[in-house]
Design a protein around this nucleic acid. Structure first.
Length: 331
DNA sequence: AACCAGGACACCC
DNA sequence: GGGTGTCCTGGTT
């Protein structure tokens, strides 16, 4: 299979993959099928084949950095083959500077310092993105970042979430009645025994969570030096402060994570607070997950949004469009 | 069929 | 009582 990625550095490729939705991997595909960018995600003939190599190369790259926690991950699961972030073809250009440079075609002569610098940026970005993904999942699922603290319900949520995100076959039953502690004590082989299809993948993901929790602990105890993505953990957030999250807050959170959710909800005009729900069912599912309401659907979610009309929190934009709403007081 | 608007009621904090 | 979740009717795209 030929694709434009082949000529690029692995770090650049992976960096764009994990952190940016205007993914260079998808560029050729978008050129081919320019009608609906979502097709890139839905039809993934070459994604599977790329994923393994890319992810491994990512870890090779990461291992060159002083990130002991990632060494831990790599040692624990050398077969890690699934990215933390799905490919998201839609992204705000300012968030993918490297892609821009790719698209402009960096001359091969600049490989030296330029590449090293962008590699460094990429490394910290990768770490940051991994933490961001975990942080977001914690908020949305209302679970703690440290798997060791999970009860059986939390474990099931995490499983559902991971399966949903990476389109794995459902394996929740195989891990029923297990707490986070149980899960953390299980070897990759035990994971595979319970779920031959995706046990290794789930184990790898759990390892990432464990490592992130470990790193978080290491960072918060002792020095306060900021390293890649660390500040993310200290972000004060309404959804982590004990009180239940409001729908409008939840929507805003999704909108603030275009890397992860740009596919299902995105800004049409951030300044005016106008956003569009691209995948109503998906957003409703996420909301249902967050609120522990398996029966949630867009009909109900939209009813709740409409309650905001009276309260002056959300309204329909002046030019009303389907699935488009507007925050009355944009940030 | 999917979305939209809003009434009514239930539930939980 | 506020903030939904659920169900409903009826209209629009």
């Amino acid at each position: 299979m030929s694709n434009p990625v082949g000529s690029l550095s692995e770090g650049t490729v992976y960096g764009s993959r994990i952190g940016m939705t205007e993914d260079s991997l998808t560029i050729s595909e978008r050129n081919r099928v320019s009608v609906d960018p979502w097709d890139v995600v839905e039809t993934k003939p070459n994604v599977e084949t790329l994923e393994r190599g890319l992810y491994l190369s990512c870890f090779d790259m990461l291992l060159t950095e002083d990130t002991a926690w990632l060494v831990k991950v790599s040692e624990a699961s050398p077969t890690l083959a699934v990215p933390m972030t799905r490919m998201e073809p839609r992204e705000e250009p300012e968030q993918c500077p490297v892609i821009d440079s790719q698209e402009q075609g960096l001359s091969p002569g600049l490989e030296g310092q330029e590449e090293e610098r962008s590699l460094e940026q990429m490394q910290s970005m990768v770490v940051g993105e991994v933490l961001k993904d975990i942080e977001t999942a914690c908020k949305l699922l209302n679970i703690t970042p440290d798997p060791i603290e999970w009860n059986t319900g939390n474990v099931q949520k995490w499983l559902l979430w991971t399966e949903h995100l990476y389109r794995l076959p459902h394996a929740g039953k195989a891990f029923q009645e297990l707490t986070g502690k149980d899960l953390c004590a299980m070897s990759e082989e035990e994971f595979r025994q319970r779920s031959p299809q995706c046990g290794d993948t789930l184990h790898a993901h759990l390892d990432i969570w464990k490592s992130a929790a470990w790193m978080k602990e290491r960072c918060t105890v002792g020095d306060t030096k900021t390293t890649g993505g660390e500040e993310l953990w200290s972000e004060a957030d309404s959804s982590c402060s004990g009180q239940p999250i409001h729908l409008w807050q939840f929507l805003r959170e999704l909108l603030l994570k275009p890397h992860s959710y740009g596919r299902c909800i995105r800004w049409l005009n951030k300044e005016k607070g106008i956003f569009k729900i691209e995948d109503s069912a998906h957003v409703a599912r996420l909301w249902g997950l967050r609120k522990n309401r398996p029966a949630m659907n867009y009909d109900k979610l939209s009813r709740s949004i409409r309650q905001y009309y009276k309260k002056g929190i959300i309204r329909k934009p002046d030019v009303s469009q389907r699935l488009v709403y507007q925050f009355v007081h944009p940030v």
